[in-house]
């Protein structure tokens, strides 16, 4: 097997722009899905019954449908329904957010319900409102327990952004595909890009494991 890494040296800017977009899309998707997921979880736990029925249905549906399917549906089908075309980046951000937010919601719900009931009751007994009980008592305790799950959601989100390549978002995966096609050096390029993804995602997984070891005792009560 003869390898030739020169296309990488020639076109590193091309890949770097892809990496930039991957990071931007990841960051935006993480922020949006954490915000949306928190709202969904709160709506499910504290909202009216009809709302929580809808939200449970939404969450379970996202657990059933692949991100890939959500992305192509939003990118190709939504414009037909609405008459508006989506820029690929925004379609990807929307699709990933819709998908990941459901997982965030599950984590938040599990975290909040894992706190002993007496904790909330103690808050109410002091005259706090539900919002205050949540903000002052439940969330601070739950957040520690949620950290490992949040960490793995972050790494899943970064991995999911690669799927945006199928709707032509010029992120790292897509740039690699393009470059591989132009240079006929797919092995070198995909291996190099593999390394780049690994270098981004591995530290996050490591951090989760480390953190999980440290806070595991907080989960036991």
């Amino acid at each position: 097997m003869d390898l030739d890494f020169s296309p990488l040296l020639d076109s590193w800017r091309f890949l770097a722009s892809g990496l930039g977009l991957t990071l931007a899309l990841s960051a935006a998707a993480v922020l949006c899905s954490f915000a949306a997921g928190l709202l969904v979880a709160l709506g499910r736990l504290y909202g009216p019954r009809w709302l929580s029925v809808i939200l449970v249905f939404y969450i379970d549906s996202m657990r059933a449908i692949p991100v890939f399917v959500v992305l192509v549906w939003i990118y190709f089908a939504v414009p037909i329904l609405t008459g508006h075309t989506f820029a690929p980046f925004w379609a990807a951000l929307t699709g990933i957010t819709i998908h990941v937010a459901a997982y965030v919601a599950e984590v938040v719900r599990a975290g909040l319900t894992s706190i002993r009931r007496g904790q909330a009751q103690a808050g109410y007994a002091l005259g706090m409102s539900t919002a205050q009980v949540l903000r002052v008592i439940l969330l601070p305790q739950a957040i520690v327990r949620m950290m490992p799950a949040f960490g793995s959601i972050v790494s899943v989100t970064i991995k999911d952004t690669a799927i945006a390549a199928v709707i032509a978002v010029p992120e790292l995966m897509r740039q690699a595909e393009t470059l591989a096609g132009q240079t006929y050096r797919p092995i070198e390029i995909f291996t190099a890009v593999m390394l780049i993804y690994f270098v981004i995602i591995f530290p996050i997984t490591r951090l989760i494991d480390r953190f999980y070891g440290r806070v595991a005792h907080l989960g036991r009560s």
Partner: peptide, 19 residues
């Protein structure tokens, strides 16, 4: 283990396809 759980699956699919 660390390599294959820290990569986007799509990339792995392409990589397998070519390599």
């Amino acid at each position: 283990v660390e390599l294959f759980r820290n990569l986007p699956l799509l990339l792995l699919v392409y990589w397998a396809f070519y390599v």
